[in-house]
Amino acid sequence: MTDMNQIAQQVADRLTARQTKVVFAESCTAGLVAASLASIPGISQWLCGSVVTYRESMKIAWLGVSPADLQRFTAVSQTVTDQMADGVLRRTEDADIAAAVTGHLGPNAPPQLDGAVFVSIARRAADGTLAVQSTRHQLKATGRIDRQREAVDCVFSELLNALADADD
């Protein structure tokens, strides 16, 4: 795992360099992504906020996630994470990019999803359309707190990648 303060600073620097505003939709990290970025002085110029939707009902009500997709794919899926990123960006008009994260940190996770985290990045194009890209990560940490921190690293890494690709 990287130092969260260091990678948060890298994200803040990249947001500043790109003049890009970000918003988050968090589930398994319960706001730790936004809190980590908010520790950087001056980030309020680029951080729009974060929606913590730990429960499925909140994903539906606050982000517009499809109840049918939640039932079919579960909350820990690429489909739902994509909808979280899309939903939070559509609802945050001044944001340029969104990152969403959901995962199973344990205990009692299904074996195939234990330590699995999905991260989706949504970008707003000049014409107003949204493009979403997703990745699945298998966390190495075993403890819940360590897994939350590792998931934050995953979100920040994917966000840095997306911001690096912004000019391509």
Rank of each mutant, 00 (worst) to 15 (best):
A109L: 02
R124P: 04
V132I: 15
A34P: 03
A100S: 14
L89M: 10
P67H: 03
G64V: 05
Q45N: 13
M58E: 10
I60S: 06
S36G: 05
T102H: 02
P107C: 10
A68R: 08
T29Y: 08
I121R: 10
D127G: 02
A116M: 10
Q83I: 01
L130D: 02
I97L: 08
V33Q: 05
T81K: 00
G31A: 10
D69P: 06
L70I: 12
A35L: 11
E56H: 09
I121E: 07
G31F: 02
V101A: 11
L89I: 08
A122H: 04
L37N: 05
D114Y: 05
A30W: 00
P111D: 14
L89E: 03
S44Q: 06
S39I: 02
R91T: 08
T79V: 15
G106R: 04
G106M: 09
D127S: 03
L130V: 07
G106W: 09
V101E: 07
Q112V: 12
R55V: 03
V33R: 07
R90Y: 04
V119G: 01
P41M: 10
G31D: 12
A95L: 09
S44F: 07
A109D: 14
I121L: 12
E93G: 09
A95G: 10
D127N: 15
Y54Q: 11
N108I: 03
Y54I: 13
I43G: 08
L32V: 05
C48K: 12
G115H: 04
A98C: 12
L105A: 12
L32Y: 01
V65G: 02
V101H: 08
V132P: 12
R55F: 01
